[in-house]
């Protein structure tokens, strides 16, 4: 585990998580959440959990982003908070 890389990616993860919750557009929130999942995948690859990293990259960053974007296009992009 390289602790410098670990620290940087942990900071990016926090920023992306807060950004996905605070942004005013739901499509942007979905894309930011996809980036958050991908950074989590990098974090697990650093910690040596390669199988979890594989699954997160395909299922977490891939499928859930597609599901989110599809749901946003079927409903509305507008949000009050």
């Amino acid at each position: 585990m390289i602790w410098q890389l670990d620290l940087i990616i942990l900071m990016i993860v926090i920023v992306l998580g807060i950004g996905a919750l605070t942004v005013k557009d739901l499509l942007s929130a979905a894309v930011l959440f996809g980036a958050y999942s991908f950074m989590m995948c990098l974090l697990w690859a650093i910690m040596g959990a390669v199988d979890v990293a594989f699954t997160e990259a395909s299922v977490g960053a891939g499928v859930s982003t597609v599901l989110f974007v599809a749901a946003v296009f079927r409903t509305s992009r507008r949000t009050k908070d």
């Binding site: 996905a20 919750l21 959440f33 958050y36 999942s37 989590m40 974090l43 910690m47």
Partner: peptide, 25 residues
Amino acid sequence: NLMKKIIGMSILQTSVILFYVSIGA
């Protein structure tokens, strides 16, 4: 907003996964 609630739920789940993977490191 319901979508924001769902995103929050996903972040909560990934945080628990982060805890468990950190235990094994």
